[in-house]
Nucleic acid binder design. Structure first.
Length: 928
RNA sequence: GGGCGCGUAGCUCAGCGGGAGAGCACUACGUUGACAUCGUAGGGGUCGCUGGUUCGAUCCCAGCCGCGCCCACCA
């Protein structure tokens, strides 16, 4: 017996275990080794993460595709795993140490700290994957990977070494985006431009040799002026032409700085003269290179002023008396230093003005601190070269974005791609496989042994060491360990993510999985990581595999709250998917997300919507109960195409239509259309009409019609379970089990397989549309009667007679055949036939014929006349519109034939209907 | 400054060249043995504005008005 109500919480975990126990998620299962492969790699969630609504959407869509293709018989691999998430994870563990009042990271040392992180990972790293299971994700967990596991780490080292040897990875000293909180370099992508209300300061720099004359520069960062090494004006700016080549004297410092002509200066902006601080501004850095300016750093890695022990500062510029006075700046935070510099310049009368100024200020993603451009040595990937192939792959269609417009975004970024800074000054991550010799010579290799061998060989060849000395070092463990120093930095987390589509399949080994599942079929992800991840996977995949990592990139929207605001903890508008799963079931959440996943628009999620789809699940549940109560059991040998009953032929055809619609929508990644089609079919076709029309048969005497109908009800229900399974895996699998036909004395399911691996419905039966004329007529008739009953206030319980007027023989046959049904659904007492309509009757036109409801004493004649007048007006306007069209020569000449024909047909139908309405009006006249 | 997108029923959104749709909300009625997490019926929209293309425009094009997002070293 099917339970009275569906209990998601009870069912979901049990069903999920059953899938896992059956090995249903595993690739290559069930004789599918010969089948077409279908693979998706999961966007690996942070190991520190917990499931948020974005994950829920992302993984629901992947799971829908994966379940759909699995049911279509493909050999499916959904490759799961997690990301080590460098900074995020390091932060979590450091915070934990603090909370437990244990020694901090630096005190415990690198090795101890890293093993602490691993411990944390073992204990807590499984949260997110457990939560994915609750959502129903059918990943092949037997293949779960972690970006820091041994295999993937090996892939990372190999990639690094090969790119280094190909000259595509190099070390460079230049400005980087520096996070002053986490004390690490970050990439351009980890920087957010934030609009800040600040001030624009106009400073007067005296000009050497021109007495009281000065040049005014505008700046938003006064504290960096101590590091100025030039003033730039535009080469064509008449105002300053004479000053180019002269020197300004930098206030407070006394440094002579040249006034140079450079295009960077915009005559429209500020004063047209701009101070140049090559060590603290990306633009100025370039100017510095062009004009061979010295780089003067005045900030340390924590964003504090560093003047005293700063060789960059003191060696090049003899401290002036003024500078000595400003030495109080040393060690000050940059923002405090800013206030003091401004104050001092004001005292000196060198501040022309200060204006309020709104501008974009770069902030570090993670820490939220203002990013400091900082001069350091870092490792870079030459992305430009790699980008060329990636762009070509998208241009040629080897990888396709869906929706298409994201390709523009992709190209736009790729065309302007900058070197990718991949080194991070943190501990948790893939340590860079680079070692330095005694003279700082760099050796890059996959292992320390290889690096050492390479280094010793190099020093021998270059006569730094003799062969004997080298051998001695190699032989002595102590000296070996001391000879090289490993680069302490680790790689950007996205570096290992970029390898995900092939590293998870076993690369660099030539595994069968790599051969079979690469390139993957589709990547499902949000637009926010097109640059971070998609582009980089494209570059790495093409370089190392010589083939794109995925055929299709499906870009989905952002999930927002019901008002359209981005969900964030600080706003307190976060909806927790696990909470929704608890309240409504995973299926309801999944269906909601799918139904709302229209391409190109963000999802505004509301609980009302989830509730609505929970109701849908309930509806399905009850429909299955109805089938069971009425003895509708799957008949394995039943072939729907052989059905004899019109009603059954009709639902078979409707089922095929729905199957086709859902299949085509899923093939085109139109999740909302697929969900909508399934919803309409189940509720508005199967439940509202088919089951209702089947009731009299099921309640009637036993016989072939009843037997067939029972089989068909069960068959259609089974098709529904299949069609709905990708969206609502739990409830459908549960119903699949509980509705299984029983074999005597045998416990358990007699289904051939779990639903998850059942065959996806075909479209067979589409060609037979004959039943529609009959069932459609019944539906129209019932609907029309119901509508009229409400309109003229017939009490719902009242049973009234129906008279079919001047019915053609076919109608008479149909009416006779469907009398029980129609009477039941339209609440009629009797169906009769007559050549003319009875007096005092409500008359409706159904598919060209008049049906009358004699309602002497019940019907309000005036109301009825008004109703018919309204209908007449409607039909008249229809005719008029068609006439107007058909009267235009242009239309007849230029419109396609089928459109013209359609218009004629519409007109004829309207005319016929009009005639019937007129007759009805006349009769009413006579009656009144 | 560049690029992308959005303005359709009270709300959330589909549709996107041939007579305006769904869900929710709303109104009325209804516990007929699957389902009140339900059923039946109903009200509600000059499809942002202005032009253009077309036999025909909510749909294509241009401009404008609102709104959002992404990218960009500008003082």
């Amino acid at each position: 017996m099917i339970e009275k109500t569906y209990q998601p919480a009870e069912v979901e975990s049990r069903i999920y275990s059953a899938w896992e126990a059956a090995g249903a998620f595993r690739c290559g299962q069930g004789g599918r080794r010969e089948a077409e492969p279908y693979s998706i790699v999961i966007p690996p969630p942070n190991v520190t993460g917990s499931l948020h609504m974005g994950h829920a959407l992302n993984n629901t869509l992947q799971d829908i595709l994966v379940r759909f293709e699995r049911m279509r018989g493909k050999d499916v691999l959904w490759q799961p795993g997690t990301d080590h998430a460098g900074i995020a994870t390091q932060m979590v563990v450091e915070r934990q140490l603090m909370e437990k009042q244990l020694p901090g990271r630096r005190e415990m040392g690198r090795e101890a700290f890293i093993s602490r992180v691993w411990e944390w990972k073992e204990q807590s790293g499984g949260t997110i994957t457990r939560q994915l299971r609750r959502l129903g994700a059918s990943c092949d967990w037997s293949r779960e990977r972690f970006t820091m596991d041994e295999g993937l780490s090996r892939a990372v080292r190999k990639v690094f070494v090969e790119l280094y040897r190909a000259g595509l990875i190099y070390k460079d000293k230049r400005l980087v985006n520096w996070d002053v909180r986490f004390l690490t370099a970050i990439s351009d992508l980890e920087v957010q431009q934030v609009e800040v209300k600040g001030e624009l300061y106009y400073f007067k720099y005296p000009i050497e040799g021109l007495g009281e004359a000065f040049i005014t520069v505008a700046t938003t960062r006064p504290e960096t002026m101590l590091g100025d090494t030039a003033v730039a004006v535009h080469p064509e700016d008449e105002r300053y032409r004479d000053l180019v080549g002269k020197y300004a004297i930098l206030p407070l410092v006394g440094r002579r700085i040249p006034i140079v002509a450079d295009e960077i200066s915009d005559p429209e902006k500020g004063t047209g003269a701009v101070k140049i601080t090559p060590a603290h501004d990306f633009g100025d850095f370039e100017v510095g290179r062009r004009h061979h300016l010295p780089l003067v750093s005045v900030l340390d890695r924590e964003g504090r002023m560093i003047l005293r022990e700063n060789p960059d500062f003191l060696d090049r510029v003899p401290p002036s008396a003024e500078l000595e006075r400003t030495l109080a700046l040393h060690g000050l935070d940059r923002f405090e230093a800013r206030r003091r510099v401004v104050a001092r310049l004001q005292e000196l009368g060198l501040v022309e003005k200060i204006e309020p100024h709104v501008h974009m200020v770069p902030h570090a993603d993670r820490s939220g601190e203002v990013v400091e451009p900082f001069l350091t040595d870092q490792w870079y990937v030459d992305a430009k070269q790699l980008a060329t192939m990636a762009m070509a792959a998208v241009r040629s269609g080897r990888t396709e974005f869906v929706p298409k417009q994201w390709e523009a975004t992709f190209f736009n970024w790729m065309e302007n791609i900058q070197p990718w800074c991949i080194s991070r000054q943190i501990w948790w991550g893939h340590q860079i496989p680079a070692w330095y010799g005694p003279d700082d010579k760099t050796f890059v290799a996959e292992t320390e042994d290889e690096a050492l061998a390479e280094a010793l060989a190099w020093y021998v060849v270059h006569d730094v060491l003799t062969r004997e000395e080298a051998d001695a070092i190699a032989a002595d463990p102590e000296r070996r360990a001391q000879f090289l120093t490993r680069d302490p930095d680790v790689l950007d987390t996205w570096f290992s993510s970029a390898l995900w589509p092939f590293s998870t399949l076993g690369w660099p080994d030539e595994t069968p999985e790599l051969a079979r599942y690469y390139p993957t079929s589709v990547l499902v992800t949000g637009f926010d990581i097109i640059f971070f991840w998609v582009a980089r996977m494209m570059m790495m995949g093409l370089h190392f595999m010589k083939e794109v990592p995925f055929r299709t990139v499906y870009i989905h929207a952002l999930v927002r709250d019901e008002k359209g605001a981005k969900m964030s903890k600080s706003k307190g508008n976060v909806m927790d998917p696990l909470d929704l799963i608890d309240r409504y079931g995973a299926d309801a959440l999944r269906f909601t997300l799918a139904a709302m996943a229209a391409q190109g628009r963000d999802i505004k999620l509301s609980t009302a919507r989830v509730e609505g789809y929970r109701n849908f699940a309930t509806k399905l549940w009850n429909a299955a109960r109805f089938a069971e109560i009425n003895g509708c059991v799957t008949v394995p040998s039943f072939a729907p195409t052989t059905a004899r009953e019109t009603l059954n032929r009709w639902i078979a055809h409707e089922t095929a239509l729905a199957a086709r619609e859902i299949t085509e929508a899923l093939e085109a990644f139109k999740f909302n259309e697929a969900a909508g089609a399934a919803y309409r079919f189940v509720w508005n076709i199967y439940c509202d009409w088919y089951l209702e029309l089947a009731k009299p048969i099921l309640a009637g005497p036993d016989g072939p019609a009843k037997t067939e109908t029972r089989a068909m009800v069960a068959w259609a229900r089974d098709q529904i379970l299949k069609l709905l399974h990708p969206f609502m895996p739990f409830i459908t699998e549960e119903l699949w089990a509980v509705t299984a036909p029983r074999s005597a004395g045998q416990p358990g399911s007699t289904r051939e397989s779990l639903l998850i691996v059942a065959r996806w419905p075909s479209f067979e039966g589409l060609e037979d549309n004959a039943a529609e004329a009959e069932i459609g007529w019944v539906i129209d008739l019932v609907s029309a009667i119901r509508s009229v009953r409400t309109e003229i206030n017939v009490p719902p319980a009242a049973q009234i007679p129906l008279v079919l007027v001047a019915a053609v023989p076919e109608t008479r046959t149909r009416a006779a055949r469907w009398a029980d049904f129609i009477k039941r659904l339209a609440r009629l007492s009797d169906i009769a036939f007559a050549e003319g309509a009875p007096a005092q009757a409500v008359q409706i036109v159904v598919r060209g014929e008049v049906a009358a409801l004699p309602l002497a004493g019940v019907v309000d004649l005036a109301a009825e006349r008004a109703r018919l007048d309204k209908e007449l007006a409607k039909v008249d306007s229809d005719i008029a519109r068609a006439d107007a069209k058909l009267a235009r020569p242009d239309f007849l000449e230029r419109a396609p034939e089928e459109v013209i024909e359609g218009e004629r047909e519409k007109r004829e139908a309207a005319q016929a209907r009009r005639a019937k309405i007129l007759e009805a009006l006349e009769r009413l006249q006579g009656a009144g």
